Simulated assay, not measured.
Amino acid sequence: MTEISSADEVRRLFDEQGYLADEGTATAVFLTLRLGLPLLLEGEPGVGKTAAAQVLARVLDAPLVRLQCYEGLTANEALYDWNHQRQLLAIRLAEAQHERLTEADLFSEEFLIERPILRCIRHTGPRAPVLLIDEVDRADDEFEALLLEALGEGSVTVPELGTFTAARPPIVVLTSNRSRDLHDALRRRCLYHWLEYPEPERVVAILRRSAPSATAALIESAAQFVGHVRNQEVDKPPGIAEAINWVAALSALGATELVREVVVPTLGALAKTPDDRDVVIDSLTTYAFG
């Protein structure tokens, strides 16, 4: 694993991967690596939470294992499951050969399916994997209890086989859009960092990296306009991801400067609901282009 000695080095390595991390994010990542604690990243959608974990895996040259959370997520989908089809085939084969299978035969490692968390716990490669538990706030409250053993002890218990403990604990990054409050027990096991929407100067720098074909004037005007949209009464304020997509759309249409004629047709990259689109269009009557 790449040995990272400081938060400044995190910023440099992330910068080489095209991710402009601020001081707070770089410090949180460094402390996660140094202390071996999970990192909980919260913030509005589109500010770079998921991308931070992806870049971290690339920087460390480590496998990235992603668990996308959603309502109704269960242990069978997050921790482990059994290959019921293979178990059934084994039973039929045993019957055909007049053999008898015991429960231990059917619930052995041969039939175990590793889901993301167990896969990371049992990982035997040269580098610890980065486990991304994405949008944990989308999962049910009960799912958080499933995480506590894995996060607190670095282990997963399979009743039929025993407890698996990581020889090299994974680097865990959880993300949350804060659609609901997470339990205190989960928060206490994590380092915490809130990702703010970046200041205008850093937005410009990010857009220059992400859309090198766009003109400087277009990028600066687009960054200002995205800030304008975020200040409107919109349900879903655009994040960095939307800003990047919008500038890419403007550039693809050959725009070199920001004018109303190119803003309206490309609003689908910024406004994600009909109401938000109407709010932004109404705001154009008083917005000073150029």
Rank of each mutant, 00 (worst) to 15 (best):
G254R: 04
A241H: 07
P129G: 04
A75S: 06
L182G: 12
A26L: 11
R202T: 10
L191A: 06
T25R: 14
L93D: 14
E135F: 11
N231R: 07
L186I: 04
L101Q: 03
L118H: 00
D81H: 00
Q232H: 02
L250H: 04
S179Y: 06
E103G: 10
L191S: 04
L182K: 13
S6Y: 13
R127Q: 07
T27L: 14
C190E: 14
Q97W: 07
A28T: 09
V234H: 06
G43F: 08
L147W: 03
E153S: 12
L40W: 07
A90S: 09
V264H: 05
D134A: 10
R168Y: 01
Q87W: 08
L258T: 04
F111L: 07
D22K: 10
I91E: 14
S179V: 11
D61M: 05
G268T: 06
L88H: 11
T273L: 12
T286M: 12
R187S: 15
Q97A: 15
V47T: 12
V55D: 15
A94D: 11
A53N: 01
E196R: 09
P237G: 10
E135Q: 05
L174S: 07
C120Y: 01
D235W: 08
I117D: 03
Y197T: 11
A78V: 04
S213M: 05
E201D: 12
R66C: 14
E135D: 13
E220F: 04
V203Y: 01
S6P: 00
V204I: 09
L284Y: 06
A90I: 05
G154K: 00
A128F: 08
I206R: 04
V172L: 03
P63E: 14
L147T: 03
R34A: 15
F225N: 00
S155K: 08
Y19S: 06
C190A: 12
T74G: 02
Y192A: 10
V279A: 05
L40T: 09
I133G: 02
A94V: 07
Y19E: 11
L35Q: 10
L73R: 00
R100T: 13
P238A: 10
A62W: 03
L132T: 06
T163M: 10
G24W: 15
M1G: 10
E95K: 04
G125I: 01
V55S: 05
R115M: 03
A271F: 05
D141F: 08
Q17V: 15
T175A: 01
H98V: 09
V279G: 04
A96R: 07
W82S: 13
G18N: 10
A252L: 09
Q17L: 15
T286D: 15
A90T: 15
V263L: 08
K49M: 03
Q232W: 03
A166E: 01
L101K: 00
P126Y: 07
Y197N: 11
